[in-house]
Nucleic acid binder design. Structure first.
Lengths: 226, 226
DNA sequence: CGTTGTGTGAACGCTCTGTTACAGCGGCCG
DNA sequence: CGGCCGCTGTAACAGAGCGTTCACACAACG
């Protein structure tokens, strides 16, 4: 069996021990670059990421792994109880999570269920909203059947917005969730990318992205599921 | 939002309470037949099954739900630590599990992630009062089903008032709570915004905001009623 | 009937956004 | 190695939208 990828490096002893006991081989890495260096020829069988030591680094780590040509999965996140709120809007970064400190048998059961589940293939590869279709596997986008030639950042921004239709996001939230790091003084960057997206969507569909003055931007219509 | 299906009936109070607090409506059933009888027209939005009281009955319950024409999902299983071994070879009966006793926030986080994963939308955060609905996620407002086109300050003011219905606020309080503590401006500003709000609410609902002479403004009916 | 408080309309000025242009950077190819 | 090109972030400007203020009319209350 191919090894699991662990983060950070070195992993805490109780995690290493639990995986050893459960019979899962593993290697650990602190950075995506290191993970790429250590990756076996057949790829990782999955990943376990500890989020409660350095949350920002951990989420950035996950994000990179998920944006590869072949997204790494399954990905199990270890979080502390106080971090449960951090999972919001980050659903796409993990497949399952486990509260830490954890019971070794719970970790084992989660990994087992994850491998069973991913074997059956359940990850969504399409994001659709009205005339818009995003193919997450091929990084292609289309509006009303017409292919869109989007750059990387445009695609990521549109994907994030379209995954959360109707919801308003401030520029700061967009910068931290799409760009992936805390950002100082460059909020206008979002405006420009929004403009480029609108231009490529075409006049007809430019209104898919709406401006909410003094707040931020919103994609599509709200869910009035009252 | 359609209710969740719970098993057994009645569910333990801590489970019922956790779901209530998280805002998920639910109905409980002991048998698949009972579940079929209680099922809403649009189907269940998901299921939460307690497995540690009567494991055999619980697994049989899950199996029946999964063998329907439209398999019920997502299905969250609540198990005790000693039952983790029982999950083996039963992966197809559940989508996720949670150790019991559980932390309410873990249950909520698992449900949220499950709904995201299976594509079922999450419920929006709403502020409601009579015919008025404020969607806090989309920054949109509606009165009697009709969308309201509010500016930022109008929305903030209405949100503050509507979240404290029946209570009277002086202009100074409103300025400090809505505009901000450091705000230094004329009290008449509030009047103008109130006026514009009333105009947009329409003649029919303008009385939702009442003037309390020499004091300030009040939204909705007073608590001690008329 | 006078005083005080509130509704109303218009106008000013600021804040926020759309838009354009440009510089840095890295990749690609000759 | 050097030049070209596409992507990205930043700065600057203009315009529109919005909040604030003012002036006056009107209502409430003694």
């Amino acid at each position: 069996m191919e090894p699991l990828l662990l983060h950070p490096d070195p992993p805490p002893p109780e995690l290493a021990q639990a995986l050893d006991l459960a019979g899962y081989p593993w290697k650990s890495a602190s950075t995506p670059e290191e993970a790429a260096r250590l990756e076996p020829a057949d790829g990782w069988s999955g990943a376990v990421v500890l989020a409660h030591l350095d949350p920002e680094a951990a989420f950035a780590f996950c994000r990179t792994l998920r944006r590869r040509d072949v997204p790494l999965e399954p990905l199990l996140l270890l979080v502390s109880g106080g971090q449960l709120g951090d999972l919001e809007l980050r659903d796409d970064l993990f497949d399952d999570f486990c509260l830490s400190p954890f019971h070794p048998r719970e970790l084992e059961a989660r990994l087992k269920h994850l491998f069973w589940r991913t074997g059956t293939g359940t990850r969504p590869e399409l994001v659709e909203y009205g005339p818009l279709v995003l193919n997450l596997e091929t990084y292609q986008a289309a509006i009303a059947g017409r292919p869109l030639d989007l750059t990387y950042m445009e695609y990521e921004l549109l994907k994030f917005l379209a995954t959360n239709p109707g919801k308003v996001f401030t520029r700061e939230i967009l910068l931290s969730r799409v760009w992936g790091y805390e950002y100082y003084g460059g909020a206008r960057t979002v405006d420009v990318h929004i403009r480029r997206l609108r231009a490529k969507l075409g006049e007809e569909h430019a209104s898919l992205i709406q401006t909410v003055r003094s707040v931020g931007y919103r994609f599509g219509q709200p869910r009035w599921s009252v």
